[in-house]
Design a protein around this nucleic acid. Structure first.
Lengths: 341, 341
DNA sequence: TTGTAGGCGTTATCAA
DNA sequence: TTGATAACGCCTACAA
């Protein structure tokens, strides 16, 4: 029996738990570290008797392989990142959950990064990039050139809710068609002056929705009104407030998302005016608002899950060509758009 | 000028970006790898001219130190974990955001793990434990013994919304006092038959709230009614539905959280009965429900932020003794508890 | 100020 | 079937 070759600085004591290395186990089981590794990973056959000894030693010393060592040797993190602008509202939340679930199934951990009012977002994203094997990026987080840099690092990137960037997969949810449908519905029910509340320059989603609204209005030979507006309750409230107070008051507001729509509802309530309102996302509050909010439901879990799967395919090399996928959404007509169902 | 000592398998070419190691940089700048490291980390003074050469080489080769190598050498992950049961509802979401924000400030990445209906939760938590330098665990995720194992691995652990476990920091939000206050309010306004909807065995929070309700009822010499109930909308709806249909119908329901309360409101609406209802958490839908839901607001962001800070203190060694902190909450009286403000 | 060399904890190739 | 050995990519005493 030869002596263990590598001299370990920390004397091999009977220490237990953290601090125990594969060398300690090897010594105790009277085998080489290589054999311990083989037993633990099942990469090569090991004699039953040897395996028993090794497993015994592992158990007695409570050995757990160091992720740090494994990661360096394998040259991979076994982790994915996900970057989102915020987590408010159930939208991102559900996406993250769907993502985490699938990633976990595939044995990958998930690192999150919120860029919410962070000035060094680009830096943060880049630094995340060298802690993961791949990452998904939501639109509205960092500019295109940063995404380019991430892609250049060589890790697979999946974009969500954002226009394509060279070298990255893209998964979006349908916007234009649903927005068109929503607007048609309003027009068909007699609404004449429809205004879109959102910022087409703010995100690809906002632009897509506006395109749909716009198309329906054009077809109906109606004015294509838009009120550029932020994406939260307050912005919705303030913008709607102004519109509803002005002359030539709108009779329908197609809002970028539910938060904006709910803010707008509040404004209408305050001013005691009747106006049809629609949102987007189907957040919980949308169901509880009175009248219940007409909105569009996106397959959020699915979006996250598909993103994780897409990443995994690229990381594992199972797929090399890029994908560009659009998931269908569902229009939910409730009462806020006029009381007809 | 001696040759670089360590022979690198990958020939040192003029390759750029990923794959470039500190040796490539060293060679190009005609210094040793050690010097490159010194420049990049600023750990030791380096002659200005040398520094220039190194920085130039770094830029030209687009060198980024491998996290894998750094982590192993430093023997730390520079990452924290957070384990939560779910992300539904803004509660966990906000906590995670507060956590991530502070962790990022301190230069740590955040790994998330959701245990939601995952059968191998314990395994997942343990495996997360060896990818991070410390972690926070929400109550209702894994049993005490698993937490014990995590603590045994040697990493600092912070518990949230869960009774103390040997060796871990604990941060909770106030439950009993607020529940007491809420119940007193109901009693003072003439409600006689108050029922608590929640499961004291389900979580420490649920138990604390029941304790407060219980105390108020006892003092008022009222029956201490409890209906064991899950923590989601559906459970709230079903439980309330049954209670409100039975004889001796309650005139007030103190619910474990807003989801339960909103479900209960739906049930009351369906049955067309009047009943005071209160929730907990102040989720967005609580404000939009009609009547608006009386509830209790917890400092969620703050909870996450404090958890991150606490973890950091322990990891950095700035603090060794354990803390056990309780953050104050705020009772928000709205209309669902009777219409008096 | 700079270089040498060993260590961090695994994995995996190549012999034996 | 098993062991020796060389990576993996960086950090940092210790020497010079």
């Amino acid at each position: 029996m030869k002596a263990v070759v590598k001299p370990v600085s920390k004397p091999i004591t009977e220490e237990t738990g953290p601090g125990v290395t594969i060398y300690h186990v090897a010594e105790r089981a009277k085998v080489s570290p290589a054999t311990v590794s083989r037993v633990l990973r099942g990469t090569q056959p090991v004699a039953p008797a040897t395996e028993q000894r090794v497993r015994k030693a592992v158990a007695e010393l409570r050995f757990r392989p160091s992720r740090l060592g494994v990661a360096l040797a394998e040259r991979k993190h076994a982790a994915n990142g996900i970057v989102f602008p915020d987590l408010s509202g159930p939208f991102y939340t559900e996406v993250v959950l769907g993502y985490e679930e699938v990633a976990a199934e595939r044995g990958r951990s998930v690192l999150i990064l919120s860029t919410r009012d962070r000035v060094d977002a680009a830096q943060a994203v880049l630094s995340l990039a060298d802690r993961v094997d791949g990452m998904v990026l939501f639109g509205r987080t960092v500019p295109d050139d940063v995404i380019g840099e991430v892609v250049a690092t060589g890790i697979p990137v999946v974009l969500l809710g954002r226009p394509a960037v060279q070298g990255a997969d893209v998964i979006n949810t349908e916007n234009e068609q649903s927005a068109y449908q929503l607007t048609r519905h309003l027009l068909d029910h007699g609404h004449r002056r429809v205004v879109y509340l959102g910022d087409p320059n703010g995100s690809a989603d906002a632009a897509g929705r506006w395109a749909g609204v716009s198309k329906a209005l054009r077809e109906a030979k109606r004015r294509r009104n838009i009120a550029v507006c932020g994406a939260d309750e307050q912005a919705g409230h303030d913008t709607a407030s102004e519109l509803l107070r002005g002359s030539n008051r709108p009779d329908a507001l197609v809002c970028f998302n539910d938060e904006v729509a709910l803010g707008a509802m509040l404004a209408a309530e305050e001013l005691d005016v009747q106006v049809a309102i629609t949102g987007w996302d189907d957040i919980m509050a949308a169901r509880y608002a009175r009248p219940a909010l007409t909105t569009v439901r996106q397959p959020m879990r699915e979006l996250g899950a598909q993103a994780a799967a897409a990443l995994d395919e690229r990381i594992s090399g199972a797929r090399t060509e890029l994908i560009h996928r659009v998931l269908p959404t569902e229009v939910l007509i409730r009462n806020s758009c006029g009381g007809h169902s």
